[in-house]
Amino acid sequence: MQSRLNPFTAAPEAIDAMVGLERYLHDCGLEYALVELVRIRASQINGCGYCLHMHTRDAREAGETEERLHVLAAWRDSPLFSDRERAALAWTESLTRIADTGAPDADFEQARAQFTEEELVKLTLLIGAINTWNRIAVGFRRVHATGGARTPKASVRTKATA
């Protein structure tokens, strides 16, 4: 696969705006493990290898287990996820597939039972952000790094802030 263009150089101000949203989401108060699960699940649905590569690595570095990462696509059939994580994952799937789901009341109510209204807004912004990154990466055929390298500006997370 060959990259179509580099959005970081083609429209740096637009990407800087997305990076600003990521900085906000990083420090918004949602649990880091939950944030990464949401990012990974949306990226699985969207088939975004670039984001899957980045966020599974970030999750592992933050202590996420291989077992949970391997069953994330089938989270409904696994006892490894908390009620709060299940609510976030259901809301993630609902909003990522919004054209098909219409964001059902049942998924909203499940999320509302586990998150404050403020957290629910933040979670929804997180889901929207990763879906935008997925569309940038898939649309422009971004190719993830191999080995330990990471493309500059690809993540606002650093080891110091993990």
Rank of each mutant, 00 (worst) to 15 (best):
Q2H: 12
P7V: 13
P7I: 10
F8M: 12
A10L: 10
A10K: 04
A11P: 00
P12I: 02
I15C: 01
D16S: 14
D16E: 15
A17Q: 02
A17P: 00
M18E: 11
M18N: 06
G20L: 00
E22A: 15
R23L: 13
Y24R: 11
L25Y: 10
H26A: 15
D27G: 14
Y32V: 15
Y32P: 01
Y32I: 15
V35E: 03
E36A: 11
E36I: 05
E36L: 14
L37K: 08
V38H: 09
R39I: 02
R39D: 01
R39P: 00
I40E: 05
R41P: 03
R41S: 09
A42E: 03
S43V: 02
I45D: 05
C51P: 04
C51Q: 03
L52C: 05
R57S: 13
R57M: 12
D58R: 12
D58H: 12
D58S: 12
A59M: 06
A59E: 04
R60Y: 06
A62W: 07
G63F: 12
G63A: 10
T65W: 08
T65H: 08
T65C: 06
E66P: 00
E66V: 12
E67K: 14
E67F: 10
E67N: 07
R68I: 04
A74F: 13
W75Y: 15
D77W: 04
S78I: 06
L80E: 04
L80P: 01
F81A: 05
S82F: 07
S82D: 09
S82P: 08
D83E: 15
D83C: 05
D83M: 09
R84C: 01
R84N: 01
E85T: 00
E85D: 10
R86W: 03
A87G: 10
A87R: 06
A88H: 08
L89H: 06
L89Q: 08
A90C: 01
A90D: 00
W91A: 06
T92I: 14
E93W: 07
E93K: 08
T96D: 06
T96C: 13
R97D: 09
I98T: 06
D100E: 14
T101E: 11
G102S: 08
G102P: 07
A103R: 11
A103F: 07
P104F: 05
A106Q: 14
F108N: 02
E109H: 11
A111I: 01
A111M: 02
A113G: 01
Q114P: 05
Q114V: 02
F115W: 09
E117N: 13
E119M: 10
E119F: 06
L120M: 10
K122A: 09
K122R: 13
K122Y: 02
T124Q: 04
L125E: 08
L126N: 03
I127N: 06
G128P: 05
I130F: 03
I130M: 00
N131V: 12
T132K: 03
N134H: 09
N134Y: 08
R135K: 13
I136S: 04
I136E: 04
F140Y: 08
F140A: 02
A145Y: 04
G147E: 03
T151Q: 14
T151M: 14
T151Y: 11
P152Q: 07
K153A: 13
A154K: 01
S155V: 09
V156Y: 06
V156W: 03
R157Y: 13
R157F: 13
T158V: 13
T161F: 02
